[in-house]
Simulated scan of single mutants.
Amino acid sequence: MATRVNGKVVTPTGVIRQGCVELDGGRITAVAEYPSVRDGHWIVPGFVDMHTHGGGGDTFTTGDAEQARRAADFHLRHGTTTLLASLVSSPFALMRAATEAFAPLVAEGVLAGIHFEGPYLSAARCGAQNPEFLRDPSTDELAELIELGDGAVRMVTLAPERDGALEAVKLLTAHRVVAAVGHTDATYDQTRAAVAAGASVGTHLFNGMRPVHHREPGPVVALLDAPNVVCELVADGVHLHDGMLAFATSTAGPERAALITDAMAAAGMPDGDYELGGQAVTVAGGVARLARDGAIAGSTLTMDEALRHAVAAGIPIADAVRMAATTPARAIGLGDRLGALQVGLRADLVVLDDELNVVRVMRGGSWVE
């Protein structure tokens, strides 16, 4: 049965101020002007979070399927209709176990895939990653995980300066797995080599990366400058100054900048003590930091908050929505199925009030309770 949702419709090409989205059978069948609409809510595509470790008190990082289901449900209520379950650096046994546990959730559609953030990362730029688990990339490990997941493994973040990194990038891209550059002390040239090998995402740009220097631009400039690389940005005012958020967005353009949460279990929860990858985390004032050294340990962000923050930082709403849905969907290979209010795509949408707070969420044509 056909359904129509009326309001200010945000499409990849702009805003239809008096518009409607028509859907049938879980798909969008029409996006059009609807002149009789007056002062409707914002209608935006469901958010796509390509980097989140958990939320609502539950985590993806332990490979627990029930926690993963609850964390996905928490983010769904905040408008995230598609997400990758991000792990942190772990022993291979946990990576295997998580792949086995999450593959059925990917097949079911609860998760869009698995993102391994590590363990093939830089010790010098490990941030909140557990240093005892860091190691050089292993094509044997990756090949085993890819086969075991049967399509569930969708992205792997690694540091291109580590031995074997370029071979790993080539293996990943050959199997249609996104290779991302992050937690890296790489030089500009090492980063460019990873991009040439197939890396197509910059993991939470600036954070966990060698800083920009005028005589050694490092990974940030190489990633911002690469026309086929999508740069993740954590829009929470903690990971990035709003001026840097705006700068990176204007440099890459909304078609290459993706809002992410990098959220941990503490998202949506009170301040207090938490855990991430076997390390103690303290959340105070909504900011998560490692207890041992105060390093930022993910965030307590949700995608609706990220969108509000980006708009408040001066990013036009159509661009911010593209960064929250369309660009990340394309970055993880799902742009032909979802991520925009376009005919033929899955009917995932979020209704927002004038302050951009979530009013209702639809996934696959059904309203979320």
Rank of each mutant, 00 (worst) to 15 (best):
M95W: 02
D64Q: 08
F92M: 09
A85C: 03
E108H: 10
P137V: 09
A71K: 03
E147W: 02
S138W: 08
A124P: 01
A107H: 15
Y120A: 06
G56H: 08
D140E: 15
V48R: 00
L134C: 07
A71F: 04
T81A: 14
G151F: 10
E144D: 15
V88F: 00
M155Y: 07
E161V: 14
A143E: 15
L105D: 05
F60W: 01
V48P: 06
F47M: 11
V44A: 12
G54Y: 01
R77D: 09
L94T: 15
S89F: 06
G56F: 08
A98T: 15
S86N: 07
F102P: 00
Y34C: 14
T61G: 01
D39C: 11
R135D: 05
F60N: 00
L148G: 09
V156P: 03
L83C: 13
G40Y: 10
A112T: 03
P45I: 10
G54P: 01
A124I: 11
T62F: 01
V37E: 13
A101Q: 05
A128S: 14
P35Y: 02
G57A: 02
I43T: 05
G63Q: 05
H75E: 02
R162G: 11
H78Y: 11
A124R: 15
E108W: 05
G127R: 04
P91I: 10
V37Q: 08
L87Y: 00
E161C: 06
L76S: 14
I43L: 15
A103Q: 14
A124F: 02
A112I: 05
I43S: 00
R69L: 12
F60Q: 02
A123V: 15
I43G: 01
A32M: 13
M95F: 09
R162A: 06
T59V: 12
D64Y: 02
T52D: 01
T139R: 09
P119S: 08
E108D: 14
S122G: 11
P137L: 06
A107Q: 14
E144G: 00
F74E: 01
D49Q: 06
F60S: 03
T139W: 06
Y120N: 01
A165N: 00
V88I: 15
D136T: 12
D58S: 13
G118V: 04
T80S: 12
L87F: 09
R135Q: 14
F74R: 02
G56R: 02
S90Y: 03
W42N: 06
R135L: 04
L87W: 00
D39S: 14
L134K: 01
L142I: 11
D64L: 08
P104E: 10
A165W: 05
A85T: 04
L94R: 15
A98S: 13
T81I: 09
N130S: 09
L76F: 12
F92K: 07
D163P: 04
A159P: 07
A152K: 01
